[in-house]
Nucleic acid binder design. Sequence first.
DNA 1: CCTTAGTCCTGCATGC
DNA 2: TGCATGCAGGACTAAG
Length: 267
Amino acid sequence: MPELPEVETIVRELIPILTGKTLAGAQVHWQKTICGDPGQFLRLIMGQTIRSVERRGKFICLCLESSYTITIHLRMTGALIFKPREKDGSYIRAEFRFTDDTVLYFSDVRKFGRIRLWTPEEPFLSELGIDPLLEEGVFRVLSSLRSKRPIKSVLLDQTLMAGIGNIYADEALFRSGIHPNTPADRLSREHIHHLSRAIPDVLRGATENRGSTISDYRSTQNAPGSNQFYLKVYGRREKACETCGAAIRRISINNRGSWFCPSCQPE
DNA sequence: CCTTAGTCCTGCATGC
DNA sequence: TGCATGCAGGACTAAG
């Protein structure tokens, strides 16, 4: 699943490729991919030049010269690719052609991904929380929590911090020695300091490895990441903890799988 | 305020 | 081998 490191990897690849390109044509093969009316969407973006490409949380933002912005959210299996493989063919949900005849394909097996056009008047991604790459911001958010919700659920809450998903929430909690079910308002001062450091560390490390490819994630050039080889708990079913040797366990928190070491992360 | 369950989707793992 | 079942999950929504 593309989270902050995977989306950041994609955006870094898109910046030199898409900046300055002008949209010449587009096709939508799965209508629900586009939020709102696809016809209206296509009319409004046609002929527009991409001024910049940015990441906000897990959103890819294509800022247009008209001051409109296209956002792309990949959700579970979405991918932006320039050279689709044979097997991608039936999963192409939309495609964008530019005046230089290059084509950007939006592929998405599970059809959860969404593309939306924002007018300059709309409150752009106003619900999104802070970027969790800066320790100071993460510390401020974690220090101000007055909620009894499990810390795992809080880390996944995009209105507090935007970009953390299931994989990196579990990894950051493991590094901090915090059980995922710990009520957020019961974290010790030490826990908060540790987690504030662990979150940016985990995200930066994963970005340096160009993300984690568990099943579907691919970069715009169809390249997998390598960070899956460095995960300490996520998906390590029945495997031994590298720190203490205990068996990694999986529990469900708010209907989301949570992987942890019962010995390194006591209740 | 909070949690839980359902929804969207498909491929893959499991079980008989 | 084939078929049925169920599960995963990000974000949203409805219900309790």
